[in-house]
């Protein structure tokens, strides 16, 4: 068997280990879906009336792509928490002593987290449509927008993997995994127009890859011109995957349960 086939086979076995668990933990699934729905409702009904975005008649059409993006990004934290848990329980030691592909442990984990994230995403889209959100850009653009968001979230899974393999406990993985996602998602164009931010913060928000991803998805969902943002968003996601998968693989071969 060649290396690639091993990687695919082993990654699938690992992904299956996590995927089997998902339907058994209905509680987790319900709460994981309630949180984004709650965010959606809070922003639409609490802030919606007070926020006016130039170029958008309706704040919902501006906001929802931002919430979609944020939810997917937050979902990436599962990867780091899960790996830290495997590490702490000694499962990583066991896996490292098996004649399996090394990368498969993390690839399998990121893939199963992707599936879980997609589920949450679908639930959210349904709720968004019920509240009044519309894909005005057509089906192809909506699919492209979704693919961009999912890819970016998948890329951040690899960042979380590095974090999960670097910290010493699940609790640390939990806080280290979430803390940077607040500035990442709020200092961006997800909820407001960055041009109203203080002068020093604006360039940060503009350069934030999350802004690029959100802007691209928003433009595609709403049928507006995308410009080069989508290509930059794509480049960021691929760059993050390349850099962090290398780091994660290196961390993995050194990690121990001690």
């Amino acid at each position: 068997m060649n290396r690639l086939r091993w990687l695919l086979h082993d990654s699938w076995v690992e992904a299956e280990r996590h995927l089997r668990i998902i339907p058994r933990n209905v509680e987790l699934l319900i709460f994981a879906s309630i949180q984004p729905i709650m965010f959606l409702a809070i922003f639409v009904y609490v802030f919606g009336g007070s926020i006016v975005i130039p170029g958008f008649d309706n704040y919902d059409q501006f906001l929802m792509p931002g919430i979609f993006a944020q939810t997917l990004v937050f979902g990436s934290a599962f990867t780091g928490i899960g790996l830290a848990d495997d590490l702490q329980k000694g499962l990583v030691d066991r896996l490292r002593s098996l004649p399996m592909s090394r990368s498969a442990v993390i690839v399998g984990r990121t893939i199963s987290d992707l599936v879980r994230n997609l589920f949450t995403f679908v639930v959210m889209i349904v709720v968004a449509l019920a509240i009044g959100f519309r894909f005005t850009g057509g089906a192809v653009d909506a699919i492209a927008a979704t693919a961009l968001l999912v890819l970016f979230s998948y890329a951040l899974s690899w960042v979380q993997a590095v974090i999960g393999l670097s910290v010493s406990s699940v609790e640390a993985a939990n806080s280290a995994g979430f803390i940077w996602m607040f500035p990442l998602t709020f200092v961006s164009s997800a909820f407001v127009d960055p041009s109203n931010m203080p002068g020093w913060l604006r360039p940060v928000a503009d350069a934030n890859p999350f802004t690029l991803v959100t802007n691209s998805a928003r433009a595609l969902y709403n049928g507006n011109p995308v410009g080069t943002d989508a290509w930059w968003a794509l480049a960021w996601s691929i760059g993050i995957i390349v850099v962090f998968s290398t780091m994660a693989a290196r961390r993995f071969s050194r990690s121990t349960a001690g």
């Binding site: 068997m1 091993w6 086979h9 082993d10 076995v13 690992e14 299956e16 280990r17 089997r20 668990i21 058994r24 933990n25 329980k89 000694g90 499962l91 030691d93 066991r94 896996l95 098996l98 004649p99 399996m100």
Partner: peptide, 20 residues
């Protein structure tokens, strides 16, 4: 080092399959 959310049989299964 067991996956506590899977059954005993599933645990044996996933390790066996990782041995190809």
């Amino acid at each position: 080092a067991v996956e506590e959310r899977l059954t005993a049989r599933e645990n044996l299964g996933f390790v066996g399959r990782l041995f190809h």
